[in-house]
Design a protein around this nucleic acid. Structure first.
Lengths: 188, 188
DNA sequence: CCGTTTGCCTATAGATCGTAGGAAACTGCA
DNA sequence: TGCAGTTTCCTACGATCTATAGGCAAACGG
């Protein structure tokens, strides 16, 4: 019986691929075991449970996404940075829907605090420094920006824009534009 | 063996309650059967499958939510209508997190077209008529508004705002304010 | 080359979904 | 009242999944 070479990392990557192909909720120990042509029980030596597996995928996705966002905003400022920031999230969600869903997986507070989620928050704040908002307005803006990007991306992914013929990309550009204008002028 | 009086409607309502208490993903045929102190197999005379059950809950939630939104914007216009519209979604999500999640359940296109989801789209458009935007800007604004409200609500529900001491309500008010200002001024 | 460790196996228990067919409880009509 | 006919819930079942326990063989180290 040749060994399949299972490791937590390989299982996590395989799970992430499966998530992108079939949806994050389809990621189970059994399904990943099938990918390796191995019995499900064998995986329990490497991951504790299905929840553990999903958590690892979530952490991977948060990390990948943070890396992409960091790349996209490096060297940019203001409106250009905002557009690049938003595009990084949207592009990732479109290229890797399962991983994007994984990144929204509910983590327990300790795990979340040690995750790349922290970098996301930091980058969002860094981006908004270009619009010099004082506290608590900066926090308001962080929440609004996070909600807007996530909400738009999710509605688009869920097919919520399919009923109207208007190009989603145009709506996205308009939204980023509007947001930039709003942040520059609305300094209440 | 006294009859439990199962009907699709009662199962749907019980499922909705269960969703609010334990999360939408916990809603299964077995779990609802336990609520009625009945064997799981008995439910299959009333609902076709777990997916059918969840779809019914989603339709119920969309309906309830549309009713609330309709109530909240009736007789209001402009900024006031916008605030009431947004509050209706947020309040519903906070009072009924499981049903709100159900309202986001992916429906097949035919079911979605016959659902109260259509009313949501119509009401969003009606709301934005107060800001006289031409097409395609109105569609852009519909998508932005939908994404913003949903994204904010979801991030809040997921506990994403717990790290900062700023009151979420204040962020919400600020966001609605900013959105109103943006829609009034950004008439590109 | 042999002992130890590691990796994947089989076996098992419990839970879930969904189907099939049976029996008890209602219904309505004589 | 009595008795079909229908409805409602049941038991029984097979399939799939989670998770644990213990076995056997491959890889590795001396």
């Amino acid at each position: 019986m040749a060994r399949a070479g299972l490791t937590p990392e390989r299982l996590t990557r395989a799970g992430a691929e499966l998530a992108d192909e079939a949806g994050f909720e389809q990621v189970t120990v059994s399904a990943v075991a099938r990918r390796f042509d191995v019995k499900a029980a064998s995986l329990y030596a490497h991951v504790k449970s299905t929840e553990d597996l999903r958590t690892r995928i979530a952490l991977l996705a948060l990390e990948e996404l943070a890396d992409r966002v960091a790349d996209s905003i490096a060297g940019r400022a203001g409106r250009e940075a905002l557009a690049a920031f938003a595009a990084a999230y949207r592009d990732y969600a479109r290229a890797h829907p399962g991983r994007y869903a994984a990144a929204r997986y509910r983590l327990d507070p300790a795990t979340a605090a040690a995750s790349a989620g922290v970098r996301h928050a930091q980058m969002t704040r860094a981006l908004l420094r270009g619009y010099d908002l004082a506290e608590p307005e900066q926090t308001h803006a962080v929440r609004m920006l996070g909600g807007l990007v996530h909400g738009f991306v999710e509605l688009e992914a869920a097919g919520g824009f399919a009923h109207t013929a208007v190009d989603p990309q145009a709506s996205w550009d308009w939204t980023v534009d509007a947001l930039d204008a709003m942040l520059r002028t609305h300094l209440s």
